[in-house]
């Protein structure tokens, strides 16, 4: 069966300027202007010529050591960053769970934050109204609805955030290391919801350092290493990665 393509990543490269932080003040610009030096020594290619095609319904796991470019790639797919070179095309609405609760305001109550965060994700008021009870039920925070978020525990905030993020069934779901929050029972609930979404045909991009969970839910694994694709394949990639990482440690 010919599957529909959901995301096409075409020769994407991403360059960061590591020294950019220092360039923020007038003094620096002035000093550099006087010295007449241009700083492009500190360039760092986070991603180099990445080509990936992801089809509808695929659950893709991204693995790799810290700084391999996993999160950068997901941010590019989500549209948060623009790649230095290359193009990303996605067909379908994307729901990024890159970091939960990005749009929360700690001064406002949970109820107010549901609307604010929903708006940040691009939903209409009508839509949030209709899903409001679902969100509250899933998060199990009924009694705390009118408490300002600053009085919430981090686990409670994560619950609320997860509940809001997954109220729609997006065509593409981007998950970056989030299931580590909340207590065990809630984690299980999250996993169940995600599995339900996946079986419903949602394309999922999943980043995790837990190879266990990648093996459990992904049917395609991409191993990134220093900005290049080292291997694409099935669950076997996880084993190769594990061997590589452990082997590397022994050699050191």
């Amino acid at each position: 069966m010919e599957q529909e393509e959901m995301i096409v990543i075409d020769n994407v490269s991403m360059r960061f300027n590591l020294g950019i932080e220092k360039n923020n003040s007038l003094k620096q610009i002035f000093v550099e202007f006087l010295k007449g030096k241009k700083k492009d020594k500190n360039q760092f290619w986070a991603l180099k010529n990445i080509d990936i095609n992801i089809k509808k319904g695929e659950v893709v796991g991204f693995i790799g050591s810290n700084g391999a470019g996993k999160s950068t790639l997901l941010k590019i797919i989500a549209g948060v960053m623009k790649p230095t070179k290359g193009k990303v095309k996605s067909y379908g609405n994307i729901c990024p769970l890159i970091e939960l609760g990005a749009g929360f305001d700690m001064e406002l109550t949970a109820r107010e934050n549901i609307y604010l965060n929903g708006a940040v994700m691009g939903y209409t008021k009508k839509f949030i109204d209709s899903k409001f009870q679902n969100i509250v039920d899933f998060s199990e925070l009924q009694e705390f609805l009118d408490v300002p978020l600053k009085n919430f525990s981090s686990g409670m905030i994560a619950r609320l955030a997860f509940s809001i993020s997954t109220i729609v069934e997006p065509e593409i779901l981007i998950v970056d290391e989030i299931l580590s929050v909340g207590d065990i029972s809630f984690q299980e609930k999250c996993e169940k919801r995600m599995t339900a979404m996946m079986s419903g045909g949602t394309t999922v991009l999943y980043v995790s350092h837990s190879l266990e969970s990648i093996k459990k839910i992904c049917n395609k694994v991409i191993w990134l290493d220093h900005g290049v694709i080292k291997e694409i394949g099935g669950k076997k990639v996880c084993d190769n990665f594990e061997k590589y990482m452990l082997g590397g440690e022994k050699n050191e």
Partner: peptide, 20 residues
């Protein structure tokens, strides 16, 4: 028009936070 509701929400947030 697309982010109408977001703008409304940001404005109400500003009001709520300002006069809390």
């Amino acid at each position: 028009t697309k982010y109408n509701f977001l703008i409304q929400q940001l404005i109400t947030r500003d009001f709520k936070v300002k006069y809390k």
